[in-house]
Simulated scan of single mutants.
Amino acid sequence: MNIYLLRHGETDWNCEGRLQGHEDVWMNRKGIAQIENAAEALAGLAVTLDAIITSPLVRARKSAEIVADKTGYQKDKIVIDPLYIERSFGLGEGLTVEERRQKYMDDTYPEMESMILFLERAKTAFYNTINKYHKENNILIAAHGAILKAVMTSVTEGKIVYEADNVQIEPGSIHMIQYQKNTIALYKYSFTEQTFFQFHF
């Protein structure tokens, strides 16, 4: 089973350095172009998607719909899964980097989702997907940077450290988890080389 992890495209809040979390922010023009590029890459690889799952937030849902259009997947079959919603950053949401530094020096925001619960949610979401779609070959999950990193951290049992920068999940990027008989390999798609490269962890 190949599970493609697609981060939504850029938003204006990304550009401004504002924490988005559960705020329902739309992609900007560049972000839509990034997802169109990602969708074309998947189509060029002749990937036949058996299921598309998305976070309920509009920036992820629109990304899923763009991929569906480009790959011939029926949009009415896209599944919205609340477990893939972005991490809640509580009162930090909407604030710029400078505003957060002034108000919350330790990057801990009142009412934010705890790391323990966040990683557990990511693990539950991933294995729910595995169990539900175990007969399918290619699954795409359209979601957000933090939750996708949390999925990677959870499924590698912490070998990919959530706080570390060795795995970057840029807007519009594609990663792939290859899952077979409880073994996991992680890849990232290179748009310049038009192929996937494996991460070693």
Rank of each mutant, 00 (worst) to 15 (best):
residue 107 D to V: 10
residue 62 K to P: 09
residue 21 G to V: 09
residue 30 K to E: 06
residue 71 T to Q: 02
residue 63 S to G: 11
residue 63 S to A: 13
residue 29 R to V: 12
residue 8 H to P: 05
residue 65 E to Y: 00
residue 93 E to C: 01
residue 34 Q to M: 12
residue 20 Q to K: 07
residue 26 W to Q: 13
residue 86 E to T: 08
residue 23 E to I: 15
residue 23 E to H: 15
residue 80 I to Y: 06
residue 45 L to Y: 09
residue 102 Q to T: 13
residue 10 E to M: 14
residue 53 I to H: 04
residue 14 N to V: 13
residue 19 L to F: 05
residue 73 Y to V: 00
residue 77 K to E: 11
residue 31 G to C: 11
residue 40 E to G: 11
residue 69 D to M: 14
residue 108 T to S: 11
residue 33 A to S: 06
residue 63 S to V: 12
residue 41 A to L: 01
residue 18 R to V: 08
residue 73 Y to T: 04
residue 103 K to R: 13
residue 23 E to R: 15
residue 49 L to S: 10
residue 97 V to K: 15
residue 43 A to Q: 07
residue 47 V to I: 14
residue 54 T to D: 10
residue 32 I to D: 06
residue 10 E to S: 05
residue 106 D to P: 03
residue 40 E to P: 03
residue 95 L to N: 07
residue 47 V to R: 08
residue 31 G to K: 13
residue 106 D to S: 06
residue 100 R to S: 01
residue 83 L to V: 08
residue 92 G to H: 00
residue 97 V to L: 09
residue 76 D to M: 04
residue 50 D to I: 06
residue 9 G to V: 00
residue 105 M to N: 13
residue 55 S to F: 15
residue 48 T to D: 13
residue 31 G to A: 08
residue 60 A to E: 02
residue 58 V to Y: 15
residue 77 K to L: 04
residue 12 D to R: 07
residue 43 A to M: 08
residue 58 V to C: 06
residue 14 N to D: 02
residue 93 E to H: 06
residue 72 G to A: 01
residue 99 E to I: 07
residue 55 S to I: 06
residue 22 H to N: 10
residue 29 R to W: 08
residue 80 I to F: 02
residue 62 K to V: 12
residue 56 P to Y: 02
residue 107 D to F: 07
residue 101 R to M: 09
residue 71 T to E: 01
residue 77 K to A: 11
residue 104 Y to V: 04
residue 14 N to C: 10
residue 65 E to P: 11
residue 68 A to M: 01
residue 98 E to F: 06
residue 92 G to L: 02
residue 26 W to F: 13
residue 26 W to M: 15
residue 74 Q to C: 13
residue 42 L to Q: 09
residue 69 D to H: 05
residue 94 G to K: 00
residue 31 G to H: 04
residue 61 R to Q: 01
residue 36 E to Y: 09
residue 79 V to F: 13
residue 69 D to A: 14
residue 37 N to T: 14
residue 8 H to E: 04
residue 82 P to R: 00
residue 55 S to A: 05
residue 92 G to M: 09
residue 25 V to D: 05
residue 90 G to K: 00
residue 64 A to I: 10
residue 70 K to F: 10
residue 58 V to L: 14
residue 59 R to P: 03
residue 48 T to N: 10
residue 10 E to I: 05
residue 51 A to S: 14
residue 69 D to V: 08
residue 45 L to K: 07
residue 80 I to V: 14
residue 90 G to C: 08
residue 59 R to Q: 03
residue 63 S to E: 05
residue 38 A to W: 02
residue 72 G to F: 07
residue 38 A to R: 09
residue 16 E to I: 00
residue 78 I to M: 05
residue 74 Q to G: 09
residue 67 V to I: 13
residue 83 L to S: 02
residue 13 W to I: 12
residue 72 G to W: 12
residue 24 D to C: 02
residue 17 G to F: 12
residue 62 K to G: 02
residue 79 V to W: 09
residue 41 A to H: 04
residue 98 E to L: 05
residue 28 N to H: 01
residue 40 E to Y: 11
residue 35 I to S: 07
residue 82 P to A: 01
residue 23 E to K: 15
